[in-house]
Simulated scan of single mutants.
Amino acid sequence: MDDTSADPHDALAGTLKRTEVQHHSSSIPGREIVQVLTEIPVGVQSGWHTHPGEEVGYIVEGTVEMKIAHSPTLELHAGDGFLIPPDTPHNALDLGPGTGHMLSTYVVKIGEPIASFVESPEN
């Protein structure tokens, strides 16, 4: 497993601890599959961002508030899964009591950044 903190293709790596678990070609033309374990300290937000493809996630540990543009806010607990559609702004906040851990699998366009920061749609 590699820590992606130095990966310029992952804007979130400078904010959160993100460890790439695996990275492979996909059977879907023009797509690749990237799996990442993200650690979010209590009270820390990911910041509003998007991905160039689907994010299929699972809360391994903790409680996370997930805001997704144009959708109701979710409160996710260990054992909960979630899906973020492609190019959809979203923001995760760890509610505690400890560090949250999320395992996310991205099915994304080849050659594009895994995550890109965007303006809050709430402004």
Rank of each mutant, 00 (worst) to 15 (best):
D2T: 13
D2F: 14
T4I: 14
D7V: 00
H9K: 04
H9G: 09
D10F: 06
A13M: 04
A13N: 06
A13E: 01
G14S: 14
G14A: 15
G14V: 13
T15P: 07
T15S: 08
T15A: 11
L16V: 13
L16S: 02
K17H: 15
K17M: 10
R18A: 03
T19K: 09
Q22F: 03
H23D: 06
S25I: 00
S26A: 13
P29V: 11
G30H: 06
E32C: 01
E32M: 05
V34Y: 02
V34R: 03
V34L: 01
Q35A: 10
Q35D: 04
Q35F: 03
V36F: 04
V42R: 06
V42S: 00
Q45P: 08
Q45E: 15
W48Y: 07
H51T: 06
P52K: 12
P52T: 13
P52W: 13
E55M: 11
V56F: 08
G57S: 10
G57A: 11
I59F: 06
I59L: 10
I59M: 09
I59K: 08
E61V: 09
G62E: 05
G62C: 06
T63G: 09
T63N: 10
M66I: 04
A69V: 08
S71H: 10
S71Y: 03
T73H: 00
T73E: 05
L74I: 00
L74F: 02
L74V: 02
E75A: 10
L76H: 06
H77G: 08
H77E: 12
G79H: 13
G81F: 08
G81Y: 05
L83M: 12
P85Y: 11
P85W: 11
P85D: 14
D87Q: 14
P89A: 03
P89R: 05
A92W: 02
A92G: 15
L93R: 05
L95V: 12
L95Y: 01
G98V: 10
T99N: 05
G100W: 02
H101Y: 09
S104I: 11
T105F: 00
T105P: 00
T105H: 02
Y106F: 15
Y106L: 07
V108A: 00
I110Q: 14
G111Y: 13
E112M: 13
I114P: 02
A115N: 15
F117M: 01
E119T: 13
E119C: 10
S120I: 10
S120C: 11
S120F: 10
S120L: 11
P121D: 07
E122S: 08
E122Y: 01
